[in-house]
Amino acid sequence: MIRELKVGIVNYKCGNIASLQSSLKLVGHRSKLINNDNDFLEHRIIIIPGVGAFPRAMDQIKENGLIEGILRSAKEGKKIIGICLGMHLLAEKSYEFKETKGLGLIEGSVNYFSEGLQVGWMRIEQNSKLKNLEKFNKKEFYFNHEYILKGRDKDVLFYNNENEKKYPSIIKNRNIMGIQFHPEKSQTNGLKLLSELLDEN
């Protein structure tokens, strides 16, 4: 089924945009790139992708004039989904390389993870119940990061447990959601999750 165009991808030139668009197509969603402030208007769901380092990414978002549009969309109640680095950008601040202010849409900060780099497939575990996402409990997804978002426990839907050290893998505050792993690169599980998130009311 081909669905209406509602997904916009913030193009701040730090993301794996082609992979994300390709995976969205697989679950039947067209998407368009958001290159400037006006482009936010036509979308109901805004995805902030991300591969890279936090300070450079924030600079790129600023230089491309995209901050206001993200904040305005959040205030209007549009669904904002940050993926990996995009999740980190939602936080209040980050300590990657240096202290850098984030978008402030999720309470918390981004810190170095004491267990080091997390590259590979991991099982996520449920922290709080959200009916339509319960089926993803203990499913495996692809992670690639060395910093984590330390947020409020009540916002954490799923977490990871590496050597008894937990960190959020999916975090949600009202219409704002951050995903630490790459659903667009997590084969079947990732496609199912994307489908669920984009199709829910």
């Binding site: 992979s19 390709s22 995976s23 197509k25 790459h182 084969q187 496609l191």
Partner: peptide
């Protein structure tokens, strides 16, 4: 790489 990504591969590259 563009061709491979657009072919619908969802495995990390």
């Amino acid at each position: 790489i563009s061709k491979i990504a657009q072919s619908g591969v969802t495995t990390p590259l």
